[in-house]
Design a protein around this nucleic acid. Structure first.
Lengths: 234, 234
DNA sequence: GGAGATAACTTATCGGTGTTTAGTTATGTT
DNA sequence: AACATAACTAAACACCGATAAGTTATCTCC
């Protein structure tokens, strides 16, 4: 047979007996270990490449030390893989938002803390936030896991806080809690997306983005805008 | 030569009866005609599929009635093709923003008209807006065409309007015109991105997005928020 | 009108991608 | 030691973006 085994000389150092570079096969019960290893590899590669399309399933498999089809033992397709990766850890967002709410202070102060927490966490997540927010979850993810989506819980927290502010006579009551919450959400979401774009553009030194102020300054301005709008300072 | 002109039996080429199975080759001077036909096809497919990754160069070529490599006579790669497609027509945005500015009224009224014009235009553009704002322009596009990017011009218009509002004592002066402009931009940008996500999720009836109010209601709330913030109505 | 020149394409092909099918191998159980 | 099966791998398929090399139609000039 005309050794079609492999003619790629670049990375094929391991004989089955050497036991050096390949990952040890998981034991019988712990097949789930691979799942988290895959998710970690995706997160790594996503952060390195900065873009979803630049990360291939083959690259993920190679980083984990496994063959590409092994991925499909845990994820139905690439979309679900990336969705699950970006979604994982977003319970942390609800946690931080609750933490921001819990402290003392007026509803406005709580709202501002929530805003800072949201933006800070999203910027930490970077590409993962972008991917999660710009993709609709694939059909393969179970409906019940969607029902308690961290994003939905976070939005509920926001609505609650705003409703409290309205009830306390602290926030305006002419729009309704939900529309106002959506508006606030849109604001912080747009801030994150803009800052991430700016960040990505700067890494390639592309002059498309206007010269924006520092992230801190932008966040301060946004929160001030959420507080009292553009109108004359009072 | 054994006419290998077309042995593709998989997909019917075009109307066999109408005599035009393939596109007529352009005449010597008018090679540029293909360029706009390609851009139109990309825009069509983008709107149909709703997602950039779902549109292949081969599909574009087939729609135009041309072979895939013909695309590369006018665009250096896929990124540039999609960038140019989404960027084309965005001069219209600056035009509409100027129109919104020109009318009578306070700086606030002009700003609100700008906001409505921006959001309206971006929602009309849909996927094209999303693609344009989430991708950094490829290196193949010329720097001088980047210098007068419609996005940059639009942002300058926004800064000007806000500066006028500040000078007139109508807008707050504690943040500076540029940070305030960025904050306003982030708000409308986030609104657009959110509404587009909602729209896309509804087309697949996915329950991830919170049940949002209608687009009109959201836009009204956002503009009200930009005006005077969340604080108690005055 | 014929002979180049060349603009406007096409055919064929390459390496890479997501995904599926059909195995193979290691582990736990009896 | 034999079996069952969890945890994988090898090979292949169809498609993709992109390139190199060839072909064909149009224009120009005599």
């Amino acid at each position: 047979m005309t050794s079609t085994a492999h003619d790629r000389s670049e990375s094929r150092p391991d004989r089955p007996g050497s036991g050096v570079s390949r990952r040890r096969r998981a034991r019988k019960g712990e097949g789930e270990r691979l799942r988290t290893e895959i998710l970690d590899a995706v997160a790594e590669l996503l952060a390195e490449k900065g873009h979803k399309d630049a990360v291939s399933i083959r690259a993920v498999a190679e980083r984990v030390g496994v063959s590409p089809p092994a991925i499909y033992l845990h994820f139905s397709d690439k979309d679900e893989l990336f969705y699950q990766c970006c979604r994982a850890g977003f319970e942390e967002l609800s946690r931080r938002l609750e933490e921001a709410i819990d402290g003392a202070g007026s509803a406005l102060e709580r709202l501002q803390r929530m805003g800072r927490a949201y933006i800070g966490y999203a910027l930490e997540r970077g590409v993962q936030y972008q991917v999660l927010m710009t993709s609709i979850p694939p059909e393969s993810v179970s409906p019940e896991s969607l029902r308690d989506d961290p994003g939905l819980r976070a939005f509920a927290l926001l609505v609650d806080t705003i409703q409290e502010g309205i009830d306390a006579g602290e926030f305006r009551d002419d729009l309704g809690a939900v529309p106002l919450a959506v508006a606030v959400w849109a604001t912080v979401h747009g801030t994150v997306m803009l800052l991430l774009s700016k960040q990505a553009a700067e890494e390639v030194s592309s002059p498309v983005m206007p010269r924006l102020p520092s992230a801190d300054m932008v966040v301060d301005a946004v929160l001030a805008l959420v507080r009292s709008g553009v109108v004359e300072n009072r």
